[in-house]
Every structure is written in C-alpha cells, then in structure tokens.
Nucleic acid binder design. Structure first.
Lengths: 215, 215
DNA sequence: CTTTTAACACCTAGGTGTAAAATT
DNA sequence: AATTTTACACCTAGGTGTTAAAAG
C-alpha cells in the first residue's frame, strides 16, 4: 500500500538518434522469472522459495518527464529516472510501477520515435512499431519490504541524500566496487543494482544503447 | 534576477469543450498599457509615472503541466496555474514569464485544440488557429519588487501557505471582500487580483470561460 | 531618493531508514 | 515465523516575507 522511489535510479546515455526527430523515452520493469525468493542469511544469497504466476499483467510504463524531446537534446544529457515510484499495491491508481515483493525484476528502457499518426502524449502501453528496447544485466534486482542484507542498507544510507540522517560521520562512503552480488530491494522501496553503473553505457550487456540488448 | 510564484494563482473552470478531443491549456501575461506606475502612499493608489515601450516582445507562454488532456478531464477539475513563475530578468532562460516591475499586467488563458498536423508538445508561441483566449478584468495587477501596500502583505501572509510563519495567531484570516482596489504585486514575486475569485467563473467580466472575455 | 538584490528564519511538501506493531 | 504496515525523527528541496545592504 506504500510506494517509494526506485534507488539507485536508472541512468542512461543514448547515441545514434536523429537529432531533429522527436522521441519519448520510457522505462518499465519486467519479471526475470516466475520464482518467489527468500534470503538465506547464513549464506548471504537469494534462494528459490516457490513459483508464482505473474498473472500476465502488462507492466506499467513510466514516461520520462522530459518527453517528448528532440534526439539532439536526449543525447546531450544523462537521462535519469530518479522519480520512478514502485509499489506493491496491485490496486494502485497513481500510475506507479506495480511489483510483487520477494521476486526478481529487470528494468527496461524504451526509446519511442514520435509518430504523428498516433497521440503518444499519454501512452499507457508500448506502440507496435517505432520502439527500441534496452535492458542491462547489471540492473537486475530483488524486491523486498524490509532489507535482508546489511550491505544494502549501508549502500542506501551512504548514497541516497534523503537518508543522510543515518550516516555514520566517521565512516567513509562505502565504495561500491565490492558489491557485485544481487542486492535485495525494498518495494514500497527502492532498487539495488548488481553493479552500480553511474550510467549504463559501461554495462556489460551493451556498451552502446543504440544496440538493443534484450527485450 | 530572482523569480517567484504568482500568488494568488489563476484558477479557472472551463465548459463547452468536446469531451474526447485533446486540448492544451496555457497562460500568458500581457501589458495593460505602456505606462510606468508609482504608488502614492497618502492616497493609497497607483499613479502614472511615465511611459515605457514594452519593446514588442512576445509574452512567454506557460503550458499547464496537465497538457495535453481530454476536454472531459479539463472540464471535471478546477484548472490551477499555481506553479507559474514570474521574473524581472529579461535574460531568463528557464522559461519563466518575464515582466517589468512597476507596470500593469493582465493574465490571459488560452485553450488550444490538439492539431495532429503540428507538434504542440513544446509550443513556445500560440498557433495561428484553434486557439480561444480568455482574460478577466479582475485579475489585472501591478508589478513590484517590494510591497507598497500593507493590505497586500496581509493578504499574502493570510492566504499563502508558505508565508504561514508570519501569521498573527490572534488575528482572523482577512476576508478578501474588502480588497477590491488594484493591489501591487511583487515580480520576482506574485500576483494580486483586484478581486480574489477562487475560480474565475464568478468573475464579473465573464461568467463562463466558454465565452471570450477579451484578449 | 527609489528600487532591487541577497541572506535569512520559517514555513510546505515530500523522500529516508528505523523500530514497533500489525498482518499473514 | 516471516512479511508487511505504520508512525516517526531526520533529511532534501523549495516557496514565504523580512531585513539590511546594494544599486540606480
């Protein structure tokens, strides 16, 4: 019933767009599998705890607030989805992205070419053509309502400006290089990348978002 | 060089739109005349203090953030422009509405029908057709950088939630019925209506925004 | 002299993890 | 026992009039 922002947020750079053409850029989050997971503390890893039907619901689309915008402008900036909100409330009517807790998900980024034949101003689902979809292995995450892993809590407190009040002033801001496991994520509450790419252009699955990397 | 919100904000209701058609709704602010004013304290009124050329600059357009939206949705709600920001900085590059201090202005509301032939997504100027423009006599105001009239200060403090810290707890919230003069307005800073219509449908110049009332 | 700017305390509005309580 | 919800103190972010200083 609660909703919180996705953190860390997905940030991407795009190349290869037509500079004068108009594009919408959007994000959604799709299940990685149909398994339910539980976190095993003593081995510090997520284990399969059963099956779930994701009930074939179409994932909600979050349109980047700068949309629509020219290819030139999109390519000049880092595109940040830091206002995306996640919820576990299936009845949500605020347009937030709906996820089930204790499941694995993967964000997808969609680049949608402006088509004068359709009104894309308030798209609720992806059009049939003119869409390129990208996803990045390192952004896979697991949903939770309470953090299972203390490293995640530490990461959040150190990196999220809104959690500044919980920082230990004596400790240095934890380097993220060592955090290459799958991190739990809190789904009224936030997103934990396997790797914390500042922008996804350095990702392993695609060094250039111009090339589709899945979806 | 500063910028502040317009307050009180312009709020309107619309009727007579086609329910399924898409519309943009926008606001701009145009000069009432080419005079410069000064406030005469002992007579509590604004007097002409000279001429100014408004240098024929096209006024900036503020698109309502809900745009575009169906006629049905626009008509169901009160349309509030409470995030409009005003500035006296002619070099402003943030898209805010630029005004000169110590001048008289009047807001205009534009209802713009969606036209698939043009991309209205980020309109910077009004299209040649498909626009209806409304303005209301009672929203005329005078720009200032510092309040000239203590009644205005009182009105702002009593009605603007962000000025709560200056409220006198013993005093009752000033009724606005008595404030029918022209109120100065603070143009990094805010807008003072002659009459404070909660929504403009009760205005004297037009009881229905469907009928043009000027501009 | 008049008008504008800038720093400030005081608000609204909303994003954090925490800890206790409630739910399943 | 595991998971979710709620109230909360503590933040970020930004909108007020005030006041003193600056600018014209």
């Amino acid at each position: 019933s609660a909703r919180r922002r996705m953190f860390p947020s997905v940030r991407v750079k795009v190349k290869g767009l037509e500079p004068l053409k108009q594009y919408y850029i959007a994000i959604d989050v799709v299940p990685v599998d149909s398994k339910r997971y539980r976190y095993v503390y003593h081995s510090s890893q997520w284990m399969v705890a059963g099956n779930t039907d994701h009930s074939c619901i179409t994932p909600r689309l979050y349109i980047h607030p700068d949309s629509p915008c020219s290819g030139e402008t999109w390519m000049r900036q880092i595109i940040s989805f830091d206002r995306v909100k996640l919820t576990n409330n299936e009845m949500d009517d605020k347009g937030h992205i709906i996820l089930q807790s204790m499941h694995k998900y993967k964000p997808r980024v969609h680049v949608i070419a402006q088509d004068s034949r359709f009104d894309l101003a308030q798209i609720q689902s992806l059009p049939a053509e003119g869409v390129q979809t990208f996803s990045f292995q390192e952004t896979e995450f697991t949903t939770v309502t309470a953090y299972q892993n203390q490293q995640i809590t530490k990461l959040k407190i150190d990196r999220n400006p809104f959690a500044k009040g919980f920082r230990d002033p004596g400790r240095n801001r934890g380097v993220l290089d060592g955090l290459l496991e799958t991190y739990p994520w809190r789904p009224p509450l936030a997103l934990d990348f396997k790797a914390f790419g500042a922008d996804s252009q350095g990702g392993s699955s695609s060094s250039s978002p111009v090339t589709s990397s899945g979806g």
